[in-house]
Write a protein that binds this DNA or RNA. Structure first.
Lengths: 381, 381
DNA sequence: CTGAAAGCGCTAACAG
DNA sequence: CTGTTAGCGCTTTCAG
């Protein structure tokens, strides 16, 4: 049915939509419940052709700005288009042409401030290539990721950018073989060989932890996301490597992987700060963890050092030292690779790792109790 | 062409895609450059039917879980589907059914932390109704808004949610008449009567400014977004009303509307804090302004009070008093209204205004110099 | 320069 | 329970 009746007050008197299709008998097979129920009775090229007194193909030519139409004919067609309020049905066009000029993006959560800029960057690249973006959130659920990705394939998106939630992407093999270009971002694909764009989680975490060590810390905690998430594991590996490189032994009590729910992170922080040998510094595995860790530390009387993975808005004012990755660059790089494939590139799968940057802002330069006095500027710049 | 060659190493040996269509002569009219060029040579229901030795419609029944198929037949069809890697082409389905099960969302910038949660909320409602979400950013450009909205209509989205950049939406009239349900969010539609979901910008700003006045301020500055943006004007109106209600005269120097670019906001802040009669408090018109204002104030020796419109992550730790609006509720409410229309509701256009909440965190409770000492808890809670 | 005919892959209607 | 036919609105091919 759709919306209709309450628009009465704003109906114009230009005679829009008063021309009806007349060539359809009431009970032809293949005809749904009357034309009125479909697309709200939209005019088609056929209607435009009839109104303009030209052939169907001529209308098509005008609509698509193809050459070979007399200026006069074109004008007549344009008039018919406008008076009927015609708009080309891209669904039909897609069916015929085989390309949808749209790409799909499966990410974790559009509301996460990390994915907004990534998505926007993908959108801009898509726009530059004349494509629309359909995106969906997997909510970190592998089943939902698959459901979404396949739904996008059923819509026949030309390409797919996936931030994996799951670890087995063989379900995409038929799609990829059928020609759906696919690029994985932020995390690698599972059990499938494909273009991938990542940030250097390992290197970033190692650098962040090394930074804490350089400032005198020996007991450093690591709080990260769930261990089934690739970046969480990589960052933990970076942590372990930095510790080992410095000849430091890691206690199991200093490592906590799990949900990024505030309660979980908060109790992890509290656990590491209490006990006989509390940590003097924390490494937070991602933006969600950092936010909660900062809140937890703000309520503590001890000055605990902190370095977080991912930059956060206002982190500068709070003096939070971070390992920043460029979410927009991640999205842009992935999208560019996708369109390179769509434009015919067919070499081996490409693997890109983007550098991270350590931004010292104070919290990562706090020295441990008993260490030399802090030589760095205070937290709030 | 699409991606293909480099997948060789992962080709399985299950015989996928070895069954070809055989009923197409090489030079039939209407045939594009050979079937291989289309959808990367995907199997169709016809192919599945041939493989399973059943009729086309039976395949359709199985694919759509329609009743009336023998378990045995169904199994044979399922096998054919799997061995061929068939996936229904929703483009064709859409063309036939007239519904795309997708909705469009035109917003300003997906990278803005205000719109991420809004978009996610819309997505969740759409998902509950079995629809996908296509979204695009207008970048605050009316032409781009129109281009996007119409592109979505050409894809025949069932409904459209628009955060207007422009002020004239008559261009949507033919679409709406043709049955595209349309809801405007965050800002009202221009020159058209339509469902609208807003936050109470006027009331929120008035309450925020009244809060500052109640804490002893008499000279209060307002820094807002560009005057062509509805919310900016409404919030300014709230500011003026609160001032007038308190019997305070407003100096032109205390009001600055314009771009939210950091340089612009920063110089506005500096301007209001200098001169013979500097303001003692600031009202920031949105999240972008607040962020820059906080940065600017952090570099000043004077303690200036601040209330910002929109909540911001970490604002709690920085002790920033805000007028919070619920972006997710905005999106959810709009999407629910949209689906109500799609489900047949056809009353008069609905207008919803969501309440805002003042969250005192310290910055809005700072008293002016010379005023009574601050009776409120210190900034960081 | 213009148009008629075929058909993209699917579903609705109808007939066995 | 199953299959055949028509046609959604468009683009392609090819013939005027």
């Amino acid at each position: 049915m759709l919306i209709a009746a309450h628009w009465h007050t704003h109906r114009t008197t230009t005679g829009l939509r008063t021309v009806a299709n007349t060539d359809r008998s009431p009970h032809t097979p293949g005809r749904p419940r009357g034309r009125e129920a479909r697309y709200g009775n939209r005019p088609t090229m056929k209607d435009v052709a009839a109104r303009a007194g030209v052939g169907l193909k001529t209308v098509s030519r005008v609509v698509n700005s193809e050459p070979g139409v007399t200026p006069d004919t074109e004008r007549r067609v344009q008039e018919a288009i406008e008076s009927l309020g015609f708009r080309r049905n891209d669904s039909a066009r897609v069916l015929r042409k085989g390309r949808t000029a749209s790409i799909g993006l499966v990410l974790e959560d559009l509301a996460d401030p990390f994915y907004g800029p990534l998505s926007r960057a993908v959108e801009e690249v898509a726009r530059a290539h004349g494509a629309l973006l359909i995106n969906g959130s997997s909510a970190e659920d592998p089943d939902r990721e698959q459901e979404l990705a396949l739904a996008l394939c059923a819509r026949r998106v030309d390409g797919l950018i996936v931030i994996p939630a799951g670890h087995d992407h063989r379900y995409l093999e038929p799609e990829i073989k059928a020609g759906v270009a696919t690029v994985f971002v932020d995390r690698p694909a599972g059990r499938i060989d494909a273009d991938t764009v990542l940030s250097d989680s390992f290197g970033g975490a190692r650098a962040g932890v090394a930074h804490l060590i350089a400032h005198g810390h020996r007991r450093i905690g690591f709080i990260g996301d769930q261990p089934r998430i690739h970046t969480a594991v990589e960052r933990l590996r970076g942590y372990r490597t930095a510790m080992r490189d410095a000849g430091l032994t890691v206690s199991d009590d200093w490592i906590s992987l799990g949900s990024t729910a505030p309660e979980r992170v908060r109790s992890a922080v509290e656990g590491m700060l209490s006990g006989p040998e509390p940590v003097t510094a924390l490494f937070a595995g991602n933006n969600r963890v950092t936010v909660t860790a900062v809140r937890a530390l703000a309520g503590s009387e001890r000055r605990t050092a902190l370095v977080g993975f991912d930059d956060i808005e206002l982190a500068d004012l709070l003096g939070i030292t971070v390992i920043a990755q460029d979410a927009a660059a991640l999205g842009r790089t992935a999208a560019e690779q996708l369109f390179r494939r769509l434009d015919g590139a067919n070499g081996e799968p490409v693997r890109v790792a983007l550098e991270t940057v350590l931004i010292p802002r104070g919290s990562g330069e706090i020295r441990p109790p008993g260490g030399r006095p802090d030589p760095v500027t205070p937290p709030v710049r």
